[in-house]
């Protein structure tokens, strides 16, 4: 052993100091240095992963919101069209109704007027007839006075003739 170079033979003193030094450095590094570095890196990794996840979620949310807003817009447009259509329809209906009502009213007035006219005509005819009968009688009386006396039978006869005349016309 003693003929070998000293680097080939373990030395107690060096071993002692080396062990001491190594334990010190191991203790300090294992307690303060390596965990700080590895945990920091792991935390950073987690943070990055979370950030990516959040970004993805936000993107998805944004896409959903966009889709929703588009749907809403489309619905609103449809509703608008619907409302416009309905309003137009209602307007047309009102006009049509008003027209129908006006027509009905006019027809009713016309009918009433016609009825009135008919009544008036009737009355007038009646008057005229009685007047004609009166006049004819008077004329006939004047004519016949001379020939005929004032006779009731004759007058009824004339009345009947006149009615026949009227029916024929």
């Amino acid at each position: 052993m003693q003929n070998m170079p000293s680097i080939l033979t373990p030395d107690f003193g060096l071993l002692f100091w080396m062990l001491l030094a190594f334990l010190v450095v191991l203790f300090v590094l294992a307690k303060f240095a390596f965990p700080a570095i590895t945990s920091a890196v792991e935390e950073r990794k987690r943070f990055i992963d979370e950030s990516l996840q959040h970004a993805r979620e936000a993107n998805e949310k944004l896409a959903t919101i966009q889709a929703q807003s588009e749907t809403l817009l489309r619905e609103a447009r449809e509703q608008q069209a619907q409302i416009l259509k309905e309003a137009k329809q209602t307007g047309e209906n009102i006009i049509a109704e008003a027209r129908a009502k006006a027509q009905a009213e006019g027809a009713k007035d016309l009918a009433a007027a016609k009825a009135q006219i008919a009544v008036e005509t009737e009355n007038a005819l009646h008057d005229i007839r009685s007047q004609v009968a009166e006049l004819s009688l008077q004329i006939a009386e004047k004519v016949v006075r001379t020939q005929l006396g004032e006779d009731k039978a004759q007058q009824a006869y004339i009345e009947r003739l006149l009615a026949e005349q009227e029916r024929q016309s």
Partner: peptide
């Protein structure tokens, strides 16, 4: 029994000083 502070022992302590300086600097950063 010989636990002299030899050249290698001094070198080891110098190295340890360097190691600790490096890693404590880094740990403080974090």
């Amino acid at each position: 029994w010989d636990i002299s502070i030899t050249k290698d022992v001094v070198q080891i302590w110098i190295n340890i000083f360097i190691l600790l300086a490096i890693f404590i600097t880094c740990a403080r950063w974090y």
